[in-house]
Simulated assay, not measured.
Amino acid sequence: MGPREPDEPTIALPKPPGWEFLPGNDAGPVRGVLYNQDLRRHGFTPNAVVTLEDLTGQVGLPAQALAKERAAVAAIVGDLDTDIAGTVSGFASRTITYNLQGRPATGLLIAVQNAQNRIWAITVTTQTTDADNPQYIEATRQLLDSLEVRLPTP
């Protein structure tokens, strides 16, 4: 997903077999949704929602961006099941799991800071009603493990 602004990060996601991509509109944080109609169960289509939010001026450090995004999820869903620190493309990240309206969900939160101290939060949230489906498990693994984030070169 290309940036909307010249200094924004670029998000590169794989498209697992059978998954389709629907780009977000030109406003708001949603950059796109991946989904797989063939895996639809219990009236719900598994999906991965990708967001990019400019947090410059709201937080001063990448760790604060991650804390802000984590707190926003927890405010909606309550307690998180897991919260694991990591990195994506050299940027600080957290992988969280939780229950969203009766569906298991996984969120990958990434904080990106450029040389001018602009800070963005990227989130990729996957959810399904059939968490044991091997195709969904593999697609989620591909999406979260192969995601790449790049800042533009000066």
Results as ranks from 00 to 15, higher is better:
D38Y: 00
D81Y: 00
V77A: 09
Y35V: 12
P6G: 04
Q113K: 12
S93T: 06
F91R: 00
I122T: 13
L13T: 11
A139E: 05
L100K: 12
N114I: 05
Q64G: 14
L80R: 01
V77T: 10
Q101A: 15
E53G: 02
D7Q: 10
L151Q: 10
G102P: 10
G60H: 08
A105F: 13
A131M: 04
P9E: 08
T140V: 14
E5C: 03
R94M: 00
I110N: 02
V112W: 13
V73G: 01
E20A: 15
T87H: 06
I110M: 04
R41I: 00
I96P: 00
S89K: 07
T126L: 13
L109D: 08
T125Q: 14
R150Y: 00
W19R: 13
A72V: 00
A48T: 09
N47K: 10
R150N: 11
L80Q: 03
R150I: 00
Q135V: 13
D145R: 15
D54C: 02
G107M: 06
A105K: 13
G2L: 14
G28F: 12
A67S: 09
M1A: 14
Q135A: 14
T106W: 01
G86D: 04
A115Q: 14
Q113I: 11
Q113F: 01
Q37I: 15
T45K: 04
G28E: 09
G90H: 09
D7W: 10
K68F: 11
A111P: 06
T123W: 03
D132T: 12
L144G: 06
P154F: 08
E5Y: 10
P9I: 10
E69G: 08
A74P: 07
A121R: 06
D145P: 01
A139K: 13
V124N: 00
G24N: 04
I137Y: 09
P3S: 15
T51Q: 14
G78V: 07
T87E: 11
R4W: 11
G78I: 09
V50T: 11
L151R: 05
T123S: 15
I11K: 03
L147R: 04
R31Q: 12
L39C: 04
G102M: 14
D54R: 10
P6C: 02
G18S: 05
T82M: 00
I119G: 03
R141S: 13
V88N: 02
T10M: 07
G32R: 10
T125N: 14
S146E: 15
D38T: 13
R41P: 05
G86Y: 04
